[in-house]
Amino acid sequence: MTALVLIESEHGKIRQASRSALAAAAQFGDVDAIILGNEGIDAAAKLAGVRKILHVPALKSALAEPTAALLASLSSSYSHILSAASSMGKNILPRLAGLLDVQPISDVVKINDEATFVRPIYAGNALATVQSSDTVKVLTVRGSSFDPVAEEGGSASVEVLEAPAEDGKSSFLRLEQTESDRPELEVARVVISGGKGLKDESNFHSLLEPVADKLGAAIGASRAAVDSGFAPNEMQVGQTGKIVAPELYIAVGLSGAIQHLAGMKDSRVIVAVNLDPDAPIFKVADYGIVGDLFEVLPALEKAL
């Protein structure tokens, strides 16, 4: 069996979530990877355990329509087609599945055998074991559930692919990015997340950032904090935001709604700071401080 993995690069490197998808794919047999645009090609060729890189320079915007069509045209050579359960993977792979009339399997956290997979349902409140009868299995996988393949050690051949003609029905206009020097949320060793308890956007920055700087941490936010405009949407941790599993997760001024817990409960060590001793976040926290975050955060910054 051979698997094909749609991988993504960022700043010339292959995203960790994509390397985790490659590790998942290796459980099925040989692994080829497909990469869009012109960035990260050298990095892709060095990835451990990859047989061949399919490089598609023309599809740099990763529009779902031509990308899914290209993947469909390649599908007869593969038993499994995977990607990270990233916003790109979740946009493109179900469309591919639609073209192939197969049932995609999203957010896989465990592979039991080549056709049987475990995935969370109901915001992670239950784990479903599912079995696919499709000839080509289309999966997105949770990065935090598979140890990524090494960035170096492989020597894959690179084959350039022509993209199919675009049908003109969709076009990319722009990407509005928030620039940050902090580590990416999904790969950071330490994440500190703030909630509505921070009261406004200015507190969100002035209280969380000094602690994050000391720890080299990424900053996340609860859905309530994002909805209130304290932080941009790409910082949201939770069922409908990013799923993270860092070594240390510090939750500040957020109660721990089910949908937030779904995005961080696999962190190795969880610290919670909240004024309300009954906040659900304390039920999953290894260490809790019941107190006023406006006092605790400056003290924490000093103590680190």
Binding site: K169, L173, P232, E234
Partner: peptide
Amino acid sequence: EVAREVDGGTEVLSLS
């Protein structure tokens, strides 16, 4: 015109 929430920020597409 659709603004989309993606991992890197907000992407804007134009669809017919």
